[in-house]
Design a protein around this nucleic acid. Structure first.
Lengths: 322, 322
DNA sequence: TTGTATGCGTTATCAG
DNA sequence: CTGATAACGCATACAA
C-alpha cells in the first residue's frame, strides 16, 4: 500500500480512502487508481480484518452438501455472498446437535460477520451480538427465520390432488418430534383437504422409525378399506420416492392407481428431470433472502419469519389433468 | 493474549509459544493453558494470518455444487480440510473459462495457502509458488493431478459386460474436444473389449451436440444390423440415464434387452439407490488425497499423476449374473 | 529457557 | 481535503 502511495505521490491514508470509496480529491483519486492498476495492488484481507474487525465472511452451518436440497442451498448462498464481496465458511454438522453448537461458538471466535444456519438442535444457543438467521427453524422473534411457504405448499398439494380427481388421500411425514417450519406442510395439507372436501388420512412417523411402518399404513389404507387411497402427499421428495417404491412393490401403478406429490423440487443430477410431482421450494430466493438479511444494516429491524412462495411442478407421478 | 499472559503471570511471547506448541517450561505451559481455558481465549485468525502470511485456507475451484459428483467432492474436501484445521474457500466457475482464470488470480491475491481445482480451461495459467493440485485435469508434471483410474474403470466395464453375456457393445461419450483424464474411460473400455474379444462400437459426441445424435446412433446399431447392441457403457451416469430413456422410448427393456453401465457412482438423493449400474469413483479418497497433496510439506516432490482405484456397482441396469 | 520489542498491512484519529 | 501516526493481535528475533 505504501508502494502505491509512493507511486501516486500521495500519503498512505489517501490510498486507503480511495480504496474504501471515501471522498477524496478527484485528481488524487485518479492518480491512486492508476498506481493501483500499475502495481496490481490488492488489499490484504487479513490486515483489513485485523484492523476493521470485519472478516467479510459469513458462516453457513448445514448438515452436509450431499443431500440435493442442501447442495442447492449451498450453491445459491455462496453465489449470493460472492456477488456481495463476501466469502462463505462452510460448516458441516452431519445432523449432530453437538457439532451444531460447537460450530456456532467456533465461528463466533473466528470473527465471522454473520451466521446462516439450518440446524436440528431445538435447544441451540444463539449468540448475541452477531447477525444470525436460520433457515426452516424458528427460534425466537429476535432470530429471523426464512423458510418456504410450507403451509401454502401443503394446501397447494391438497388442492392439486383434488383437481386431479383423487377421492381419498393421505399425508406421509416423519420427524414429528421436531416442531419446525416443515411441519407446517402437513397442517397446510390438512387445511387444503378440508377446504376441498377431500377425505384424508395422516401418517406420522417419529424420527428413526423404519420405512416398513409406511408400508403397513399404506397396505391397510389401500387394501383393507372400501375407499382405498388414490393420492399421497409426502413431506419430502425422498419420502415420495420411498412411497412410490412401496406402492410399486404392492403392485400398484403410479400415477394411474395412486398419484403422488412430494415436497422440495429435487431433480435428477441436480438440474434434469424432477424426481416426482412436487412442491418446489424457491431455493435461489431462499438463499438471496437469507444473505440479504444476514448482511442487513439494520439487523434488529428484521421480521422474525419470512415465508417465500412455492409452486407446483408436475413430475410424472400425477396425471396430466382432470 | 496479553490478558492470558497477565492471568498466567508470564510474558506475551510465552503464551504465543504455548499456543503454537513450541517447547516451554512445563509449569509455564500448565499455567498458560489454565489461563487460556479460564479466559476462553482463542487466537485471532486475521492477526495470525497477517503475521505469519498463512491463512489456513485452501481454495477449491469447481463449476458448481449442484451436480451430484461436485456436491460429493465438495463435501469430502471440506471434511478433509476441516480435520486438518483448514478452511475452504469455495469458488464456483459455472464452467466459465474466464471465471476459472479470474478465480485463480483472485485466490492468489487472497493469500490462500493452496488451490485445488477442477476446471475446463485447457489453457489455464497455473500460478507459481503456491501449491496447486488439479482433479481430473493434467496440465504438466509440475502440477499434480489426482484422478480416478478412468482407464481401469473403462476396462472393468467392458469386462463386466462380457461376463454378463453381452455379444456386442458400445461406448457412448461426449466432450471429445477436451483431452482430459475422463477421456481415458473410453480408451480403457476399448482395451477391455479387445481383451475380452467383445465386438464394440464407439460413439463420440462433440461438446454441445444434441442428445438426438445418440438416438440416431442407437437406432442404427439396434435395428439396422444383424447383431444388435446388447450392452452400453456411458461416460457418465448422466449419459447413461439419457441413454436408458432413449432405449425405453425405442421399446427396449433395460437390462433384459440392453444392459447399461455408467460412470461416477451417483446415487438418488446423494446417498440412496444407485441410479444405474456404474463404475464408482472413490470420492472420499479423491478428496483426502487432494488435500494431503496440497498441504504436503514437500510439494515439489509430489508425483504428477495419481490414479485411485474404482469399483463396479450393480444398480439395476445390468443383469444379476451370467 | 523466558521476556521484550518490533513489524506485518490496514484503518482511523487528528492536526495541518 | 491531506498526511503523519497509533493501534489492531500475533510471531519472532534478540537480549536477558
Amino acid at each position: 500500500m505504501s508502494d502505491v502511495a509512493r507511486e501516486a505521490g500521495v500519503a498512505l491514508g489517501t490510498v486507503s480512502k480511495v480504496i474504501n470509496g471515501q471522498p477524496v480529491g478527484e485528481s488524487y483519486r485518479l492518480r491512486v487508481e492508476a498506481a493501483v492498476k500499475k502495481l496490481n495492488y490488492r488489499v490484504n484481507p487479513s490486515a483489513k480484518a485485523l484492523k476493521s474487525n470485519r472478516t467479510s465472511t459469513i458462516a453457513f452451518i448445514i448438515p452436509n452438501t450431499i443431500a440435493p436440497f442442501f447442495a442447492l442451498l449451498t450453491h445459491y448462498i455462496n453465489m449470493a455472498l460472492e456477488k456481495r464481496g463476501y466469502k462463505m465458511m462452510l460448516c458441516f454438522t452431519e445432523y449432530d446437535r453437538d457439532r451444531e453448537q460447537e460450530y456456532v461458538s467456533m465461528v463466533v471466535h473466528n470473527r465471522v460477520d454473520g451466521i446462516i444456519a439450518l440446524t436440528y438442535n431445538p435447544k441451540l444457543e444463539i449468540p448475541e451480538g452477531i447477525p444470525f438467521v436460520t433457515i426452516d427453524r424458528f427460534f425466537s422473534v429476535s432470530v429471523p427465520c426464512i423458510a418456504s411457504d410450507n403451509f401454502g405448499g401443503g394446501q397447494l398439494a391438497a388442492k392439486k390432488l383434488a383437481e386431479l380427481g383423487c377421492h381419498r388421500v393421505a399425508c406421509l411425514r416423519s420427524g414429528s418430534s421436531l416442531t419446525n417450519e416443515p411441519s407446517k406442510r402437513k397442517d397446510g395439507f390438512v387445511s387444503g383437504c378440508m377446504e376441498a372436501g377431500l377425505p384424508f388420512e395422516v401418517c406420522n412417523l417419529t424420527d428413526g422409525a423404519p420405512l416398513s411402518a409406511f408400508e403397513v399404513f399404506l397396505r391397510h389404507n389401500l387394501f383393507d378399506t372400501d375407499t382405498p387411497l388414490d393420492g399421497l402427499f409426502c413431506g419430502t421428495d425422498l419420502m415420495a420416492w420411498d412411497a412410490i417404491k412401496i406402492l410399486r412393490n404392492l403392485g400398484l401403478r403410479v400415477p394411474e392407481d395412486v398419484q403422488v406429490i412430494g415436497f422440495d423440487g429435487i431433480r435428477m443430477f441436480g438440474d434434469q428431470d424432477y424426481i416426482c410431482s412436487t412442491i418446489v421450494q424457491p431455493v435461489p430466493d431462499l438463499a438471496e433472502t437469507a444473505v440479504n438479511m444476514v448482511l442487513s444494516n439494520d439487523f434488529t429491524g428484521l421480521p422474525p419469519l419470512i415465508c417465500l412462495p412455492v409452486r407446483y411442478q408436475a413430475g410424472g407421478t400425477t396425471r396430466d389433468s382432470l
